[in-house]
């Protein structure tokens, strides 16, 4: 038996909106640690890892580990029916072939439940090794989304370079070249407006903007995005979910032949 109750139900909606463009079907894994997911996009270039820790839920019951295969766009259709202030409960029986989503309005005067069919998904679970990153950039998530959106109107790929100067985003297209440099800026009024750059070594990597733009769909989850870079390793674009966990996107860099 599985029963997870989240008073801030809008978080589930934001998580789904953040990952459903990248991944069609995925197994949600439930254990005593929390509610998690790891899935690759259909071309196996990017990977998303989600963790919602059990402590973050108002009620969390998971009698034994279960993995539930779900179609994310169908799930999003059902979650669209939940109000932004609704309390969301996810329920499933061990060995069952459905999952139930229950939405309660804050005043308890409207209660809906939606039963969705589960699916069997063959998925490969990948081991993500702990890595020392050459550079870690923390910046406002809205600024990062803006940069990715702007650059994708000019080119298809972005070179992200971190040096003493700051973090530079470069693209090239038929019409020309664009460079955007963000310098470390910690003297702002609010911590979420700061750009913080930790650099152990200069790093420069090329990525497909299409994927970066897809990752920025998770922007409403966090004011801050953390971009971890190491030469010849996938970049990690992380949106922390306050008190609960994270959504991390991994993207393989393009490699010169």
């Amino acid at each position: 038996m599985l029963e997870l109750r989240l008073v801030q139900g809008s978080l589930f909606k934001k998580v789904l909106d953040g990952i459903k463009d990248l991944v069609n079907d995925a197994n949600f894994d439930c254990s005593s640690t929390g509610f998690s997911l790891q899935a690759m996009d259909s071309s196996h270039v990017a990977l998303v890892a989600l963790l919602l820790r059990s402590e973050g839920f108002e009620h969390y019951r998971c009698d034994r580990n279960i993995s539930m295969g779900m179609n994310l766009s169908n799930m999003a259709k059902m979650f669209k029916c939940a109000g932004n202030d609704d309390i969301i409960t996810i329920k499933a029986d061990d060995g069952g072939d459905t999952v139930t989503f229950m939405f309660e309005s804050p005043t308890q005067d409207k209660i809906s439940d939606f039963e969705m069919k589960l699916m069997s998904i063959d998925s490969e679970h990948l081991g993500i090794p702990e890595a020392e990153y050459h550079a870690i950039v923390k910046m406002p998530s809205s600024e990062f989304a803006r940069i990715c959106r702007d650059l994708s109107t000019i080119g298809d790929t972005v070179v992200i370079s971190v040096s003493k100067e700051g973090v530079k985003f470069t693209t090239k297209g038929d019409i020309g070249i664009a460079n955007i440099v963000c310098r470390q800026n910690t003297s702002v009024d609010k911590p979420e407006e700061a750009t913080v750059i930790e650099m152990n070594e200069p790093v420069s990597l090329t990525f497909a903007l299409r994927y970066m733009n897809s990752f920025t769909k998770a922007t409403p989850l966090s004011n801050i995005v953390t971009i971890s870079l190491s030469n010849e390793l996938p970049v990690v674009v992380e949106y922390k979910i306050a008190e609960m966990g994270y959504v991390r996107f991994y993207l393989a860099p393009k490699i010169e032949e």
Partner: peptide, 14 residues
């Protein structure tokens, strides 16, 4: 041009 490798080139199956 640059080649796009898959993520499985970096992370292996467990």
């Amino acid at each position: 041009g640059a080649k796009q490798p898959t993520i499985t080139r970096f992370f292996s199956k467990v």
